[in-house]
Nucleic acid binder design. Sequence first.
DNA 1: AGGAAGATCTACT
DNA 2: GTAGATCTTCCTA
Length: 185
Amino acid sequence: MLPKSFYDRDPAIVAKEILGCILVKKDIELLEGKIVETEAYYGMSDPASRARKGAKIMWEDAGTAFIYMVHGNWLFNIITLSKGEPSGILIRAIEPIKGIDLMKKRRKIKEIENLTNGPGKLTKAFGIDKRYNGIKIYRRNSPIYVRKGRKGNFEIVERFRIGVKRDLPIPLRFYIKGNKFVSKL
DNA sequence: AGGAAGATCTACT
DNA sequence: GTAGATCTTCCTA
């Protein structure tokens, strides 16, 4: 399982290095998925950042889960840190590994490719909502955490972020090239 | 009270 | 594949 120090770095670095790792939810159920797409968000210097909208939780320590609602969807973020500025990464898409039947049930569909290929979709499939806001995912016994995946060779594609009104002039969206579960090319 | 928000679903061309 | 409606909570007036 990834230690707190992993998250305590620049969000763009964390966003890239977490690709290929496994997102795990384990409490009364066991769900796993490989992280295939992420985005990085900075603090006050980032026009798209929730920090500017007064999300206090962004000032908590690295490795804190940050969950909020957009257009009727819960989005799952992890707090990171760079130079004392609040920042974070958004998990945009994962590839289902374990608990696929439960994910299908929650999403009410059966095509695997459509199960978790978007930030709002994966939270629904995993049953993640506001209740998990603020948990420390680096702690033992955390119901949600990330662990290292199998080493795989893949190329990382860099793109501009999706959906943000005003983006920064640098690419902050990262995904695994050729993966079917990426939300958008 | 009303609008905005880092999205998704559906119903078409 | 794309456009438009609609999703739900939070923030500001």
